[in-house]
Design a protein around this nucleic acid. Sequence first.
RNA 1: GGCGCCUUGGCGGAGUGGCUACGCAGCGGCCUGCAAAGCCGUUUACACCAGUUCGAUUCUGGUAGGCGCCUCCA
Length: 451
Amino acid sequence: MRIRDTLSGEPRAIEADEEGVVGIYACGPTVYSRIHIGNARPFVVFSLLRRFLESEGYAARLVVNVTDVNDKIYVAARSAGVPSAEFAREMTQAYFADTDRLGLGRPDAEPLATETIEGIVALIYELVEGGHAYEAGGDVYFRVRSFDGYGKLSNRRTEEMDQGEEAGSASLKEDPLDFALWKASKEGEDTSWDSPWGRGRPAWHIECSVMAEEELGESFAVHGGGADLVFPHHENEIAQSEAAGRRFARLWMHNGMVETGAEKMSKSEGNIFQLSEALDRYGREAVVLFLISGHYRQPLAFGPEQMEQAVAQVERLRNFFRTHQLGAPGTSEVDPGARRELFLDALADDFNTPRALAQVFELVGDANREEVPGAAEAVRDMLGVLGLDSIAEVDAAADAAAEALLAEREEARAAKDFERADAIRAELAARGWEVRDSSAGATLVPLAARG
RNA sequence: GGCGCCUUGGCGGAGUGGCUACGCAGCGGCCUGCAAAGCCGUUUACACCAGUUCGAUUCUGGUAGGCGCCUCCA
């Protein structure tokens, strides 16, 4: 299993630790609003990466944090008129509910920043003791120039960094490059904790350094997240953890952005499409399929047309299972096992999901042409690795009224009363059923959900 | 301005120094009472300009355009 490592810029093997565990830490959301399709991409990518690794025999452990204390949460809570802790709790629950609907299971651990305060304070204290951080007016800042490796992940040099920030404001920093580890409690902030530097709360980056270590140890296999986190978030995590003597992540993996039009979907751009709405309109299979229809590192275009395509692809796969049963007899030149190997090879090669999906569709096409023993099993297994084996499930049985109409239509057809038969077909369509005639008789299929 | 990435057929989106990616949509056909599903065929795809090469969409250089990060962001 090789993944393109952001730090070295090269494909590198994923290395399990001594216990044989592949620890994966993926940055989760800051819960100040419902998550959108773009936020769902890393959730899907890393959930499926864990799934694939497990299917390959690794013991994978996925940790996805929730950042539930943050400036934006204070702001959003205030405008919602509720205490920020309560607001964060509600949004965290909404995040769990929304991602549950993707049907990919939960990460193995989902730590909250607010439940990691003790460890956060301890690490900051350690950094201060080691000379890598300093207290100033109740805040604590990381001393960037004390860490030689700063900039190695995002390929920036400290000399070239924009230092013009906070022009005019009375910064307490020794150096404009320094970033906050701990922030003194301010007016209007209704959550705070005791620390050696007074009441306050953690700044943005520090919680991930601590949570990753608490859940996965001082060194772990993969650290992931959206490409927009490379700088400063992940750069700062490296600085915090490595300055404190940790080996930290052995490989960095970043997913590209979901774009609408030609722009990144982001809450600040206002061009968002909520995950829950996408699930309502297109169904979980189409949403998951859409999110893996492009390589994880590339930007991915989102739009109604793209989602309709995903719905149509799901339908094609579903139709395959409607007409191809498991345990099909016969012989064929087509080797489903070989397809499955190519599918797994594609995933093992920098998690190339579009290439893997092409193998699925190749086999579906082959088996639609001729009966291929084992094809249905292989397709279902491949989809299973991608969390999409629900597509193989048989349709819910039609209700009695629909079945009666279908029988009536069969009678009309037998009597060559096609006008009547077509009228019944329209009636069934209005009830959500599509009639499909075949030599084996007519069947009812649920109409596909379309946006 | 700095760093990184991208430009593939109507759309989405892989990939490769010479061999049909795949899917969606359109068109024609087969099948069908008609449809649907499925199958077959189909519209000379690789931004532009040079260079390397027997041969480049694939490598190198440049041009144009676009995106991301540099401030909160998956």
